[in-house]
């Protein structure tokens, strides 16, 4: 379930990235790399688990599924937080930088 959640997140982010490409002002590429990297790694984890438990891998208990879904969603949220921090630090639109300054009008007053 964690693998599935991350793969869906990776696909959605890749579609969003492609729609906006070659513009990359929102740095959605970061999310694509992160989720695809994690998906590949969890795929290997899934293969090893399958080798261990065989068919049982495809019939998890509802409690395990729920726990894995909860973990998957938390991973997606963490990825989004990392992306948001990078976006705000890079500040490609200059919004944060602009909010740190007050513009002066022609008469010298602050706005």
């Amino acid at each position: 379930m964690t693998l599935l959640t991350t793969v869906f997140a990776a696909i959605i982010c890749t579609v969003i990235w492609y729609r906006n490409a070659p513009e990359s002002q929102m740095h959605t590429g970061i999310l694509c790399w992160m989720y695809w990297g994690a998906s590949l790694m969890w795929l290997v984890d899934a293969v090893f688990e399958y080798i261990d438990v065989h068919e049982e891998y495809f019939t998890p208990s509802p409690a395990d599924m729920l726990n894995d879904l909860y973990l998957g969603l938390s991973v997606v949220a963490l990825g989004l937080i990392i992306w948001l921090v990078i976006l705000l630090i890079k500040d490609p639109k200059g919004v944060i930088k602009a909010s740190l300054f007050q513009k002066k009008d022609k008469s010298g007053n602050h706005r």
């Binding site: 994690a38 590949l40 990392i82």
Partner: peptide, 12 residues
């Protein structure tokens, strides 16, 4: 990017 991103989420 693939390695850092994947490792970070797996570490979590």
């Amino acid at each position: 990017n693939l390695l850092w991103g994947g490792s970070a989420l797996l570490a979590f």
